[in-house]
Design a protein around this nucleic acid. Structure first.
Ligand SMILES: [Mn+2]
Ligand SMILES: [Mn+2]
Ligand SMILES: [Zn+2]
Ligand SMILES: [Zn+2]
Lengths: 127, 127
DNA sequence: AAATAAAACGCAACTGTGTTGCATTAATAA
DNA sequence: TTATTAATGCAACACAGTTGCGTTTTATTT
């Protein structure tokens, strides 16, 4: 079976994401990491971390992708990422609103596997 | 003031989107339009149609972008696109669930301008 | 109907993001 | 310490979207 290894790149990148209070893009992570590794490695590390459910992926309204750490309880059985993300049009910061989980009622026979809820507008700092 | 004109490209593209029951990507529109115009023109027409609130933009979980027509009442004052979009992992079709509008309660001082709610999984046809 | 203004267009070149193949390096387990 | 293979670096590629600019087309005015 395929095991996962703890490398310096992976450790560094995870630390960067964990210590950030906003979601970060691949490019932002690259800058913050002082080019500790090749950009391809960052892509691969991010994929691994997402696969391990340590971080989660956020798709912005413009299609850009950001990453944030998973702060919730690791109940495993019901590990979901159904909170809302807010993307500020002015400061461009993307924040996880972990406590805001939207409710909705789907028509029958839809099987949901992943969700992405993104809002954009002005954050409290830029209002 | 800057007026908008009705060109053959714009008319054709809008017809394609209106007659489709699923959301379409730029590339899909290009194929369906039989290369009636340059691909750059399609980008520009799509931007214009979004600006005129005739179609709306959908961001998928993989960051790809699709477009669908606005079927709702044009009440103008409260023209919103806060319905859910479902992206099937098997048939890859993206559908507007216009009747499914999620409810959520934001912390104070957030000013929302745009929303994007996307689910992925299996649609009724592929279940 | 002809002249005018500028919105829209085509083309070519460019940018940014993410991917792939393959040889090399380094983490883990024996 | 050695063996195995996950992870990396590098170079090349794919692809979506953008930009500049000269030309065409639309819609308005005369
Ligand atoms: Mn999470
Ligand atoms: Mn709409
Ligand atoms: Zn802000
Ligand atoms: Zn399907």
């Amino acid at each position: 079976m395929k095991t996962t290894r703890n490398t310096t790149a992976k450790t560094t990148i995870l630390e960067i994401i964990k210590h950030s209070d906003v979601a970060l893009s691949h490019t932002e992570i690259q800058t913050l990491s002082n080019n500790i590794c090749d950009r391809v490695t960052i892509y691969r590390v991010l994929d691994r971390l997402v696969g391990e459910d340590v971080i989660h992926k956020i798709v912005n309204l413009d299609g850009t992708i950001k990453y944030a750490s998973c702060h919730h309880v690791h109940n495993d059985a019901e590990h979901t990422h159904n909170h809302i993300h807010f993307s500020c049009e002015k400061c461009h910061l993307v924040t996880c609103l972990e406590n805001v989980e939207p409710t909705f009622k789907l028509p029958p026979n839809y099987q949901v596997k992943e969700v992405n809820f993104t809002l954009s507008g002005f954050c409290p700092n830029c209002l």
